[in-house]
Amino acid sequence: MAGAPAPKPASATPPPPPRSVPPPPPKPAVPAPKGSSKTIKLRIGRYRPERSAEPFYQEFTIPYRDDMVVLDALNYIKDRIDPTLAYRWSCRMGICGSCGADVEGSPKLTCALYLKDLRKSPVTIEPLANFAVLKDLIVDIEPFMEKLESVNPYIVRGDEKPIERGEYRQTPEELELYRQQSLCINCMLCYAACPVYGHDEKFLGPAASALALRYEMDSRDQGSEERLAAVATSHGIWQCTFVGECSVVCPKHVDPAGAIQQLKARAATRLMRSMLLPLSTR
């Protein structure tokens, strides 16, 4: 396998001519890769529930190139060595959130991590920590989806303005208040890094909390009361011990740890207000 040509999903095609000139004969479209004689070893955590009850590791040696990301390596293995390898991916540009895995023990988007930056062989790739594994690198997302849905992640309004009367005005400064939290791609790396979620699967966790804050801080929203109640539960934001690993691993700089602290402050203020003020002024 080491001598096979290196993969790349896309490649250079000879430029076609203008309309008046016939096209040149086709040439091989894949350019000779730089350093194609080099190889790299990958050690992949696998789990085949229909074959064996225990997960295991399997090693693969593949041609290496400096511009290969971890996902390219997985695709090489699936296309040319072992088509049974199971993992999720789609956009390969860091926005769909499908391709997270633990690489060398850290949760990463496999499409955005270059093998050259790891500087080692073998490279160990395992399913995201803290999630149930379904098959190979594919983990069970359902518990995460339930957490997202639990925070009322949508605009809630008492009064709806008719569409014909146009938009709700929101200044660039008001947008800036929640813009950072709106950038979450639901890749779940933060859950894989969170020690609290690691031992309490009911913990609301980083991304869902950041999503709650995103709507809390939106000038158009009037649903704060219910949303804060949904996040300030026994398995909610108070469980966070502010380790901050979630913000370290977040590929989109959403800062969920900071978001949880802001939510705690808002929930505490709401609690104080409800204790100190007469009902009529709350």
Partner: peptide, 22 residues
């Protein structure tokens, strides 16, 4: 236009002019 405004009402974080319009 109605669809863009509908998205705005649903919370889409459209970039804004200084006066708050999409």
């Amino acid at each position: 236009p109605g669809e863009v405004i509908q998205m705005e009402h649903w919370g889409c974080p459209w970039s804004r002019e200084p006066d708050g319009r999409v």
